[in-house]
Design a protein around this nucleic acid. Structure first.
Lengths: 349, 349
DNA sequence: CTGAAAGCGCTTACAG
DNA sequence: CTGAAAGCGCTTACAG
């Protein structure tokens, strides 16, 4: 059976002996089609192998069936080229594509620079050419006020991953403060009385929340601020190393380190080895990320597993609902996991 | 400056005082536009922030500026859910998106099942709705004759990653025979006189080539076939373990193992440890894949690094050229890398 | 419940 | 070198 290269709605209409609006109603599950007619049309769609052309639907005024997912360009490329894997993107695609599949949507990933002057023009290009039904913003783009305002002006529904505000957005996030409290308490319960936090950059929303929760948890336990140093990291290995060196050179250095991401946790492992500190015997380490490398590191890291796939999946679901004219805006919290592996233990002595 | 939500070609034409065809010519770099007019139009495009609507361009008869990239659905999901990372997909996105970016193209990834009955309908849906300018097929889809024939009938340019034939396709691949020769010689040069090859399945094209090259390289060095055992693996850990057990139980067992992929190389490390063999002192191991896990394994594996990103990038480049009406079909070999790390050494004695 | 009309924003021949 | 016309394949009001 050699099907013609391009079957259009007109072909189906002719084959079924109806007008093209009727076919349109059938494929869009519209009302007002006699069951017998609907069946006849469906049979023809099947037989001719008709698939509606997305561009034409779009031009006709329908939705685009496209979700545009925006990631930090430089960081994503960096992860890819370093060959260290890119679990965040993997999980994002996993969650997003699974959800999009279910609704016959397509997810397109675009990498956008974070420089002040280029972000908006780049997104404008992507949005203008693709005209997606919704845009998913991940850190740090989701915290870019100017960008978010621009998107709002364009009237494009926007989901933010790792942002809490809600309002006229689809915000999906995990309880960063709760996670930090849980992690800090875990260390306190083990007996640690001096804990260092290797924090991420200040413009990362979640990092801010974690800083706050970290301070609070220590304060509640009666630990003085000096015994809870916060090192300002940038999520990269090298800087984390030097910050750690300083932290550990203090008169009464921390016996445990909480790292805001994996690379910095690895840095902690590295620095510990350099100084002859055994992990977890001499130094406990916890990561706030849980990529494959972490699970297979030696020793395997105790870590917070972020619900990346679930967050992005939820973002897609809400954006798709919105595009159908349903309700969808709001703030949605997804559960994280705290995975205790082999890098935390009671301090010596 | 509050720009209108949707600037069309008509707005630009009006602002520049020309017809919309002239604007069309300018944005498509067409000929026959007076320089002064071109400049005026470009200025207006810039000022109004005009971005052509892809759907409209498509409907007008232009290309879609979309490359559809097809991956094995089950395997991709498996890798994502197992949390082991998915370096292949990462590298594919890296190579593909980098190239697409340069041409203002968008890459859309779709996961398609490999079951005989569902592959074509699924692809038909994706292709029919997206109407991409080209499709990239990765293993095992690239070896699906029925699928490839279907795509050819649809007249959609198709690139195959890891396929050698060329012809009416864009085939991108690496020199598997050369890589195997290099790897084998590396071991021979170190003094190994008995080498085992843990091969992939017979229906996997590249594995076939590697088997052949392996046999030839040994023959050239005057190594008898008994000292170059080939174990038939299936790319998975468990089977590799049992094949290796047998290999190493031989009267004069190999002092080096070449594994056709990472999982089997890990199996070699595992079996060696079980038998009290130190790597590389008692057993050298080389992998024919180089995912992040390999690089960070203990000890780090000596491996062939496949040019995944480069292959996919090249595939995109050719597909894009084709869509512009340029030549593009053919077979393209991309260079692999042989990365010597810590698992190869001269044999004992 | 169904169809004839208009239009989405472009591009491609075709005229001039 | 430039523009008026037709059309891509749909959908959305609108009419019946």
């Amino acid at each position: 059976m050699h099907k013609p290269a391009k079957v259009t709605i007109e072909d189906v209409a002719a084959a079924a002996g109806v007008s093209r609006q009727t076919v349109s109603r059938v494929i869009n599950n519209g009302p007002n089609v006699k069951p017998a007619v609907r069946q006849r049309v469906e049979a023809m769609v099947e037989q001719l192998g008709y698939v509606p052309n997305l561009s034409a639907r779009r031009m006709g005024g329908a939705r685009s069936y496209l979700i545009l997912s925006i990631n930090d360009r430089a960081r994503t490329f960096e992860n890819w080229t370093s060959g260290r894997g890119n679990d965040w993107v993997d999980q994002m695609l996993y969650g997003g594509m699974s959800e999009c599949e279910r609704h016959n949507y397509h997810m397109v990933l675009e990498l956008i620079d974070t420089d002040a002057g280029t972000t908006i023009p780049q997104i404008a290009r992507a949005v203008g050419s693709l005209r997606p039904d919704g845009v998913i913003l991940t850190p740090p783009h989701c915290d870019n006020l100017e960008l978010v305002a621009w998107l709002e002006r364009q009237g494009i529904p926007c989901a933010r991953v790792g942002h809490y505000e809600g309002g006229n957005f689809v915000d999906v996030f995990m309880d960063d403060e709760g996670a930090m409290r849980e992690v800090t308490r875990h260390l306190l319960d083990l007996g640690h009385r001096s804990i260092g936090f290797l924090a991420g950059p200040l413009n990362y929303g979640p990092s801010q929340k974690r800083r706050k929760a970290f301070r609070e948890a220590l304060a509640e336990a009666g630990i003085p601020p000096e015994a809870g140093p916060i090192g300002a990291g940038n999520f990269y290995f090298d800087m984390a190393v030097s910050v750690l060196e300083t932290m550990l050179a203090a008169p009464s250095p921390p016996t445990a380190i909480i790292a805001d991401n994996d690379k910095m946790a690895f840095a902690a492992l590295h620095v510990a080895a350099d100084r002859g500190l055994k992990v977890p015997d001499d130094l406990s380490v916890i990561s706030f990320e849980d990529t494959p490398g972490v699970r297979f590191s030696v020793p395997p890291l105790t870590a917070i597993r972020q619900p990346t796939a679930a967050m992005v999946g939820k973002a897609c679901a809400q954006l798709i609902a919105l595009s159908k004219g349903e309700e969808g805006m709001g703030a949605f919290e997804l559960p994280y996991e705290f995975v205790v592996r082999a890098t935390t233990k009671a301090p010596r002595g």
